[in-house]
Structure formats: structure tokens, C-alpha cells
């Protein structure tokens, strides 16, 4: 009798798309595990001389920052880890409030005062270097971030990975829907890196905005572009597995070589080079190469996964 049941159920599992499994096992789960290790080191630090540990953890976040669905979206977790862009300057304001509080409850604080970007202010911004209670707040924010990361990681392990592995549930009716979700995170990751991480500091030719660069205080702005591209390339390769596509690799390589020519420039770390006319062109080229990847995917990989990007469905208004 047991055998018979196993026989009947078997085909259901065989049908699972191996790409979803690979994205989970080779991209999502290990990258969140790496983030968890990095925030654990931050949370366990005995002093606040933790710039290197912060750099590692922030980069680990950038590498999963495109996975904005499921566990990251639940309970506003991603916002609590990463409040950026911040056009109103809410993060320093929230930090001033938190520093004024003798015993702040971080989990109840505004998300603007939590997470990696808030810690960056405390660790790297001169305005906070002499602030009373700075080290205590750094430690509290580090523990809070680690708790949030652990929640995301556990949610992936205990709940969400299973929803994607064994589709046919309310969240993903079939494997195609799971693949489409992953594809969407790939393209929105590319959009965010091109439009926000590069677009914000680029501003316009007449008015570049170097102070709007992501993580410019820690000089990670340019590095974040590379971290993001490598992670997105990893995801793109797995998703295109049915049709091994050297062309995707070529597109990412073109973007990376554009990145290399920016990196050679003086002052490229924090992207302040956007104010120098000749250098700026190289940053614009990098941005264009990322948009090229995006267009290539929507014309090639997207249709193969059954994603037709509609005029209205993409609009979001």
C-alpha cells in the first residue's frame, strides 16, 4: 500500500523545474546565509571599531537586495535593514532622536534609523563621530539588524523555499509562476542598480548629484554596483539554464568592463567622479550597459519564461 502511494505521488515531484531548485540552493539560501554570518560578526563585536565588518555585511546585503518578495517583504524586514534612497534625509534625523534616548527600543524606531544605512552614518560620517552614545547605538543597531536577517533566513528555510520548491499552492500555482517571480527580482534589481545606484548620483549633465550616491560615506558606492551585478549575473545564469546562453554572459561582461574603466578613475569609489565631465561619460556608459542587459533579458529570457512585459502591467500607477 505504501508503495502504491509513493508511485502515485512520484510524478508530481519529478515535474518540479530544476531552475527553481537551483536558484534556491545556489543563490538565495547561501547568499542569505552569508548575510547572516556577516551580521552575526557585527552583532558580536566587542567595540565599535567595526568598519570592515560593516563593509562585509553591507556588501552581503547588496547581493540579496533584489530579492524583494516573500520573507524580505513580510513585516517590513527589508525596510528595517535598508532605508535608501532617503531624499528627505530621514536617517540622520532618526539617529539624532535615537541618540537622545537613553534606552531606545530599536525595533520600535523608525526604519530610517535602523539597518545598514543608519549604521553607516554612525561609523563613517564626521557629524556623528563624537556623538555621545554612538558606540552603544552602533551595537544596538547591529543586534537589531542581525535579528532581522535571522528572521528572513528562517522564513526562507522554514516556509518560503518550500512554497517555491513544491508549487501548486496559493502563492505559486505552478513552477512558471515561481520562475516569473525570480525573473522579476532579476530585472528589478538591474533597474534599481542602473536608475538609483547610478542614476541618483548622475543626476543631469548640468546638475550632477554626487551627494546622492549610495553608501558614499564608506566609499562603497562603486563597489556596490559590482556586487549587485555579480549576484544578478548568478541569478540570470541559473534562470537561463534551459537554453545555456553565452549572450547573457557577454552582456554582463560588457557591463563589468565598463565598471573597470570607472574604477580606474581617481575618486570613483564614492562616484563623486560624476562631476568631472570626461569621467562622467564612463559612468553613463556603465549605466547604459546595465540598461542593455535589461533590454536583452526582456527580449530573450523573459519571453522564454512566459513573461511578457506589458505596457500597463509594468506601469505601477
Amino acid at each position: 500500500m505504501k508503495l502504491a502511494i509513493a508511485f502515485i505521488l512520484a510524478p508530481v515531484f519529478v515535474a518540479a523545474d530544476s531552475r527553481v531548485r537551483e536558484v534556491l540552493d545556489d543563490h538565495i539560501l547561501p547568499r542569505f546565509a552569508a548575510l547572516s554570518v556577516a551580521t552575526s560578526a557585527l552583532a558580536d563585536a566587542q567595540n565599535c571599531d567595526i568598519m570592515d565588518k560593516w563593509n562585509t555585511a553591507a556588501a552581503a546585503w547588496i547581493a540579496v537586495s533584489h530579492l524583494r518578495f516573500g520573507p524580505s517583504e513580510a513585516e517590513n524586514r527589508a525596510f528595517a535593514l535598508a532605508f535608501w534612497p532617503d531624499p528627505r534625509g530621514s536617517t540622520p534625523k532618526s539617529l539624532v532622536d535615537l541618540l537622545a534616548d537613553d534606552d531606545p527600543v530599536i525595533v520600535d524606531a523608525s526604519v530610517a534609523g535602523r539597518g545598514f544605512y543608519a549604521m553607516e552614518f554612525l561609523l563613517f560620517d564626521l557629524a556623528f563621530s563624537e556623538a555621545n552614545g554612538r558606540c552603544d547605538l552602533v551595537a544596538a543597531l547591529a543586534r537589531d539588524a542581525h535579528t532581522t536577517v535571522q528572521e528572513i533566513e528562517k522564513d526562507w528555510q522554514n516556509r518560503y523555499a518550500e512554497l517555491m520548491r513544491n508549487t501548486g499552492n496559493d502563492t505559486y500555482r505552478n513552477d512558471t509562476e515561481a520562475l516569473q517571480e525570480l525573473y522579476k527580482s532579476l530585472t528589478s534589481g538591474l533597474d534599481f542598480t542602473a536608475s538609483m545606484r547610478l542614476g541618483r548620483p548622475l543626476g543631469t549633465f548640468d546638475r550632477p548629484r554626487p551627494l546622492r550616491a549610495e553608501m558614499r560615506r564608506s566609499a562603497q558606492s562603486l563597489n556596490n554596483i559590482a556586487v549587485s551585478l555579480r549576484s544578478l549575473e548568478e541569478l540570470a545564469f541559473i534562470l537561463s539554464a534551459d537554453e545555456p546562453d553565452a549572450a547573457i554572459g557577454i552582456k554582463f561582461n560588457e557591463a563589468m568592463s565598463a565598471w573597470n574603466s570607472v574604477e580606474l578613475l581617481e575618486g570613483s569609489d564614492d562616484l563623486s567622479v560624476v562631476t568631472v565631465h570626461t569621467s562622467r561619460l564612463k559612468v553613463e556608459t556603465l549605466q547604459q550597459r546595465i540598461f542593455d542587459i535589461r533590454v536583452f533579458l526582456s527580449e530573450n529570457l523573459g519571453p522564454e519564461l512566459g513573461v511578457i512585459e506589458g505596457f500597463n502591467s509594468l506601469d505601477g500607477d
Binding site: 517590513n76 525596510f79 528595517a80 534612497p85 532617503d86 531624499p87 528627505r88 526604519v111 536608475s195 538609483m196 542614476g199 541618483r200 548629484r209 546622492r212 505601477g316
Partner: peptide, 10 residues
């Protein structure tokens, strides 16, 4: 200054 990015979801 941040395009269509949503700033206050929580």
C-alpha cells in the same frame, strides 16, 4: 529626487 521609489511603506 528618488523617482518613483516608495519611501514610507512601513
Amino acid at each position: 529626487a528618488s523617482g518613483r521609489e516608495k519611501l514610507n511603506i512601513p
